[in-house]
Amino acid sequence: MPARKRRLVLVDEETGEVVDPKPRVPHDFEGKGYTLQSVGAETPLYKLKLSGAEWDTLDYLRENGGANAYIRLTPEDLATEISANESTCKKALSRLTRLGILLKPSPRAAAYQLTPLRYWEGAGSTQVTATKRLAPPRIAPDDKAKARTAAKKTAPPEPTPLRRAAGEKSR
């Protein structure tokens, strides 16, 4: 007797109707190579209205090991490195932490790490582990990022689709 073939279908719990499954969405990667940034999973950085000092802070951390571990960084040190005021650096670190791009081991610590949801250096498996361990918040646009210029105020901003990143739990 031939084995009975199981057939699984999606059923709408309310109506009892069989629902067609959604087609698979092709991955952004498309075999074009290997990138160390999780591009596509988060709000684009250029949409966050980051200042020059904030971009420089991200670059500094990325080039100094901040993409896979906490590194000690004070606004004074950062100011020397990126040729900016100490207060500007303090504001930059504060805003990037509020946006969820930078993580701190504790609220009063002077150490920062780039969120593994967006930046990682190392194997993909360790990125997944780090994401599970740190459980970083999603990069969320703040009021400054949401503020639109006078000319653009008429058109509503397009919502950015949210997708789960590698190792991230559903919320």
Binding site: K49, S51, G52, E54, W55, D56, Y60, E63, I82, S83
Partner: peptide, 10 residues
């Protein structure tokens, strides 16, 4: 040269 040394604007 590191990008943060190039004084790029936002």
């Amino acid at each position: 040269p590191p990008l943060y040394k190039l004084k790029l604007t936002a």
